[in-house]
Design a protein around this nucleic acid. Sequence first.
DNA 1: ATGAAAGCGCTAACAG
DNA 2: CTGTTAGCGCTTTCAT
Lengths: 355, 355
Amino acid sequence: MASHTTLLPKKGRASRVTISDVADALGMTKSTVSRAMNGYPDISESTRLRVQRAAEQMNYQPLSHAQAIKTGQTRSLGLVLQLSDHDAQRPFLAEFLAGLSAGASTKGYTLTVAAADNDTHLSEVFQNLWRDGKADGFILPRAMVKDPRVRLLRDTEVPFVLFGRQADPTGCCWFDIRGEDAMRDAVLHLAELGHRRIGFINGGEIYTYAQLRREGFLAGMAAAGLEIDPKLVAGDSVTRRDGDAAAARLLDAANPPTAIVCAVDHVALGVYRAATDRGLVIGHDLSVTGYDGIEDGSHAQPPLTTFAVDSRQAGVELATLLIRRLSGEAPETLRKTAGATFLDRGSTGPVPNHN
Amino acid sequence: MASHTTLLPKKGRASRVTISDVADALGMTKSTVSRAMNGYPDISESTRLRVQRAAEQMNYQPLSHAQAIKTGQTRSLGLVLQLSDHDAQRPFLAEFLAGLSAGASTKGYTLTVAAADNDTHLSEVFQNLWRDGKADGFILPRAMVKDPRVRLLRDTEVPFVLFGRQADPTGCCWFDIRGEDAMRDAVLHLAELGHRRIGFINGGEIYTYAQLRREGFLAGMAAAGLEIDPKLVAGDSVTRRDGDAAAARLLDAANPPTAIVCAVDHVALGVYRAATDRGLVIGHDLSVTGYDGIEDGSHAQPPLTTFAVDSRQAGVELATLLIRRLSGEAPETLRKTAGATFLDRGSTGPVPNHN
DNA sequence: ATGAAAGCGCTAACAG
DNA sequence: CTGTTAGCGCTTTCAT
């Protein structure tokens, strides 16, 4: 596709082609070239074209550091990671980074990553990255209900994009997956199979996705005309272990559920274990629906019913949104959600009649 | 600890403290300040101190972009990811990034991450990052036996550090964990328990770690005076599924092993499954030793015998090594290995006598 | 619509 | 030892 770039120089860094080279080759001045490249309105269409063609042909690309010194923009997107159990165990991160990197690079952007240990440290990391011009804006993974990052960045007018939604959308751009729809569909699917006692295990309640998924579950129950038994609802479960514990509670209740909907995939795996420990067969004695998608399929047996989330695509979307934001687009126009695909891989079944 | 940095400005980017500000405040010229900050030898100790104190106090930090335009150095470490099954499923990446970020930031460095899809794309990613001065050097995860990255970067004299060793060490810096020792110890441990038929399932053979671990296994067998049965040796297994398949082959052999050593942790999980499918009890009918450490313990039951690898620490080490390399230290002095801790969590046991 | 010139924040000869 | 003077590659007034 792209014409192959020249090889690296045998020694040291390449002596790049500069704006002056292009200007000289075209018999114009640097300023004309600069304005042509940056889409200023006072440049004739013909010269703009000549310049762009020459730039392409001479393989000229403005040095972002040199631009940064005047403009403050360095064509790099910032990502600040906060380590938690939640994310650690999954393909999520690698795929997500790949998506971000891909989305960024198509527009000539690059990715700067930092990790924050704890909350006090968090704002410092942002400040440093911003102060030093290491990032023109930030991608914030896992939007929280009360998100300190949003407060910090919004107040200071630093551009950012959320992975996840926000109750107060002022100044927020985001990409998110409509997990609530999936939860709702899961309930309806189970209700159609005849289930009436449906349990729910929610994810980390500090995150907005959990609020939304809970609402989706409730909406599904309401639509199916089913009642909510508070004893069959658990929350704040994000790991397999959490799922095991939560499911144990539900299954050992006086009147246990015949189906359980989980907001998080690994939690569903925990439910499998709890069920198996009690001699229950998934898809027969108990129906389980998990969310998110453990892609390699090596964990679940029998197959987990799941809604796939494409982390890579999320990364691409977020990078693109942030870049558009940096180009001056209004936040209101930069909000996007995507649906989740329902996949029953056989973990749901009819209501058990031995009761 | 650190005195809290000033808040972000209400609007736009902070008007930073420049070198001129410092110079003016001290009644000297920019060049003196510059040289004092960069440790030039022709600056009196007294002024160096005055400058450093003033810089600290005025919260001055040279703008890396401005420096870069002259020096080419932007104080940022490059990391190019190649997605593979191998890495996807694990905490590895998050911890590793955290370590890199931590190691880098203590020296005022930052992390630039990119992802490469395939081999053709790979060199392009390096070139762009390097050409555009987005990275002063690179961290290369998972050293390979014939590593195209090493060839590319060594030839062009781009600084880099390997996670993993290299047969031809010319110009290479690295950090690695001595997995071969762990493999050896595992064999000796099993031999001591009386095992004579010990199988081995190696990891991805394109990586140097696999070569080394194989050698470790062989060394252990030799030291224990045991013979190698080629039928009990498998390789190129990196996932649970791979482990399941490989173990099936070993266990279904005419004269099956009483113990299996795995080079990769998830593979050991696969062995568990294959064993369970055949009605074998781990630690009783079959001993299994895995490598690497699935930290959360939620996967293995009964506990897997494992050797922990601290991904975070590896990140810190690698960042530190690369920064030292960038400061001009010779590659030969920048090679470091760390031992692996042996932990028998109960997955090994005596030789079964029902045979 | 384009050129001339100044300057961003910093480093690096070259003087003295 | 320190100051003077040029730039680095690029953007951005201000003229024309």
